[in-house]
């Protein structure tokens, strides 16, 4: 039994260990993608969530299988946390037929609708109304699922954010809005772009709870999200959880990061969410250093295997170009 921290009841020691490995999987996946973009091995662009693993893994950890998520342009972590296979994700980034979108979506559109991942989204704030719609289905069909809606600090300035949260609040829909505040909307610092201290404070405008959590502390994320999910599942309506975090990499592949200092980056790297969970697991006697390193290596190997899988997978035939436009 974990002694030093409180955990949601469904989070067992075994689950915590899995989450530790999952966070490594997210990190290695995005670091590998970063490497490939730098080498020009995959085309297009990508948005990496290195440093933000705790908000993705922590928020999804408390969900049931039937629950759904909507994700963002920085969505690889959300996909993995909602149970996506890294093989098929990597294949998608390579544009292969075995990818989640048969090579038609790429990094910004990975979705697994059947498993409840309603998709990443290339439009900032674009997925927020979709999450509300999924919440409406849950309510109207009495399906009992909750929708986790990920978005960033930048999206909280979009009209769709305000409109959709208002709608979810007046209809008491089972949606939990998770703001991953990574401090910058591309180059725009949140403190210059938002006139309230916390994005969660905006919840007051919709008469719903708004909580700030340490987005680099998976335990804190799990506890608060779990409470909001339970509230939503019990018909008490939506909440906003703001996870304060930081993206270690630039906004996208071409970012020189002129808008922030290397000192600031270093400070945030010291709050490494994976390191913090590792320490907790070792201090609690759940993992040994050796076992922790072994899990890390296993995650690394899974990502390396996914590259092999992607490389071996076929490119789509030109014949498929016009397929799947209409149902």
């Amino acid at each position: 039994m974990i002694k030093t921290v409180k955990l949601p009841p469904q989070i067992t020691e075994e689950k915590l260990v899995n989450l530790f490995k999952e966070m490594w999987l997210i990190r290695f996946f995005d670091e590998k993608v970063d490497e490939f973009f730098a080498k020009g091995m995959i085309h297009g662009t990508t948005h990496l969530c290195v440093g933000q693993e705790a908000s993705a893994s922590g928020a999804c950890a408390v969900l049931e299988d039937r629950d759904k998520i909507t994700s963002t342009h920085r969505g690889h972590g959300h996909c993995i946390a909602k149970g996506a296979e890294v093989n098929r994700m990597m294949a998608e980034l390579f544009g292969r037929t075995t990818g989640y979108c048969k090579g038609k979506g790429g990094s910004m559109h990975i979705a697994d609708v059947d498993k409840g991942n309603l998709g990443a989204n290339g439009i900032v704030g674009g997925g927020i109304p979709l999450a509300v719609g999924a919440g409406l289905t849950s309510k109207m069909k009495e399906e009992g699922y909750v929708v986790l809606c990920f978005f960033g600090d930048g999206a909280s300035n979009e009209g769709s954010f305000h409109e959709a949260i208002n709608l979810a609040s007046i209809w008491d829909l089972p949606v939990v809005f998770i703001c991953e505040n990574n401090q910058y909307g591309m180059s725009g610092p949140v403190k210059e772009m938002v006139n309230v201290e916390n994005i969660a404070d905006r919840a007051a405008a919709y008469g719903i709870p708004g909580k700030v959590v340490d987005g680099n502390d998976i335990i804190d994320v799990m506890n608060e999200v779990n409470e909001a999910v339970e509230r939503a599942r019990n018909g008490k309506g939506p909440s906003i959880i703001e996870a304060k975090t930081y993206r270690w990499k630039g906004h996208s592949k071409s970012d020189a990061k002129k808008y922030r200092t290397r000192e600031e980056e270093k400070e945030w790297r010291e709050k490494d969410p994976i390191g913090r969970l590792r320490k907790l697991l070792i201090d609690e006697g759940i993992l040994t250093e050796e076992k922790a390193d072994q899990l890390k290596q296993e995650a690394k190997k899974e990502v390396e295997d996914s590259v092999e899988f992607a490389k071996k997978s076929p490119e789509p035939s030109i014949d498929t170009l016009m397929e799947d436009i209409y149902a």
């Binding site: 909507t70 979709l130 719609g133 999924a134 409406l136 289905t137 109207m140 769709s160 709608l167």
Partner: peptide, 12 residues
């Protein structure tokens, strides 16, 4: 929001 809600409901 209402357009997006309709779309999200349709998708589910």
């Amino acid at each position: 929001a209402i357009a997006g809600t309709a779309i999200g409901a349709a998708l589910t």
